[in-house]
Simulated scan of single mutants.
Amino acid sequence: MRRVGIISQVRMGSTRLLGKVLLPAAGRPLLDYHAARLAGSGLPVVLATTTEAADDVLAAYAAAHALPCYRGSETDVLTRYHEAAQHFGFDVIVRVTSDCPLIDGELIGAAVGRYLAEGNPRAYRSNGVVRTFPRGLDFEIFSAELLAEAFAHARLPYEREHVTPYLKTTLAAAGRVALRDEVWAGGDLSRFRITLDTSEDYAVLRRLIEEHDAASLPLPALLKLLPAQPDLMALNAHIEQKTT
């Protein structure tokens, strides 16, 4: 049986919002909600942080919360993922980022089920290529085989920092990766941001959690809540997602 695991990349450094993952909402760090909601997938969850001294606090957080942790390169995140996957013996990797405190584990678990049912180690499944979900629910699923290929051959700094561009561009263009999209049947909600990148994003997430109990909502209820709060969701509607 193929061993599937979620690897969440996390670090304290951020050019827009320093230490963002440990910012509080309802008396708990946002990283608490991220880890708790990922647990709904039924899959092992590990944190992949850096060897920088600033991230010692995240290694301590992982130890205190019984979360397996791997520490690697700060800038070569592709290598960090490859090493973490090898360290934990994952055959299939679900890549997520820790700036998604309202990520949905059940959504990920269902997508993993479809990935495994296909039985194609050269498939790449994601809800972020054709985007219908709000930003902040993103995940990618791919095999350790594909990850090792990217690790061995990706050369551009962008490809090393963002882990999967080599899979989605170079290998896909050569017909060596089969792209599979996960879309939301309820329509296009990609205009909404429930990710954590700026102070405006933090204000939205904090109010969603503290005023609407968003961290406890199942996905359909969460996605129904967003368009019902136009004033709140307007607070970060102007933010452009950082891509480099």
Rank of each mutant, 00 (worst) to 15 (best):
244 T>Q: 07
150 A>E: 07
193 R>S: 11
78 L>K: 07
233 M>T: 07
88 F>N: 00
21 V>Q: 03
42 G>W: 12
52 E>D: 14
212 H>S: 10
140 E>S: 15
45 V>M: 00
2 R>A: 12
174 A>P: 05
234 A>H: 13
13 G>A: 14
239 I>V: 15
167 L>F: 13
16 R>Q: 15
11 R>C: 05
105 G>Q: 04
150 A>V: 05
76 D>R: 01
65 H>N: 13
105 G>C: 10
9 Q>V: 02
198 T>E: 09
18 L>H: 12
10 V>S: 08
76 D>K: 00
153 H>G: 00
82 H>P: 06
98 S>V: 01
208 L>H: 03
186 G>F: 12
106 E>S: 03
231 D>E: 15
133 F>T: 00
79 T>F: 08
177 V>N: 04
166 Y>Q: 08
114 R>G: 04
119 G>P: 13
115 Y>E: 08
120 N>V: 01
29 P>Q: 07
166 Y>K: 01
66 A>W: 00
187 G>W: 01
47 L>R: 14
216 S>Y: 13
184 W>V: 06
46 V>H: 11
16 R>I: 13
175 G>T: 03
5 G>S: 04
25 A>C: 06
216 S>K: 14
120 N>E: 11
66 A>I: 05
181 D>G: 00
188 D>V: 07
238 H>M: 15
227 P>T: 03
132 T>G: 06
39 A>H: 11
72 G>C: 04
158 Y>E: 08
213 D>R: 15
163 V>A: 10
235 L>C: 13
89 G>M: 12
120 N>S: 01
169 T>R: 15
162 H>R: 14
241 Q>A: 12
118 E>I: 14
43 L>N: 02
183 V>N: 04
175 G>M: 02
81 Y>V: 00
192 F>C: 09
211 E>M: 03
68 P>L: 01
11 R>L: 08
169 T>V: 12
149 E>K: 11
208 L>Q: 09
199 S>W: 11
82 H>F: 14
211 E>S: 12
36 A>F: 13
56 D>T: 12
136 G>C: 11
202 Y>W: 15
85 A>P: 08
67 L>A: 07
168 K>A: 02
43 L>Q: 05
28 R>V: 02
82 H>R: 15
114 R>W: 08
64 A>D: 11
44 P>F: 01
217 L>E: 05
29 P>I: 05
157 P>D: 01
171 L>K: 06
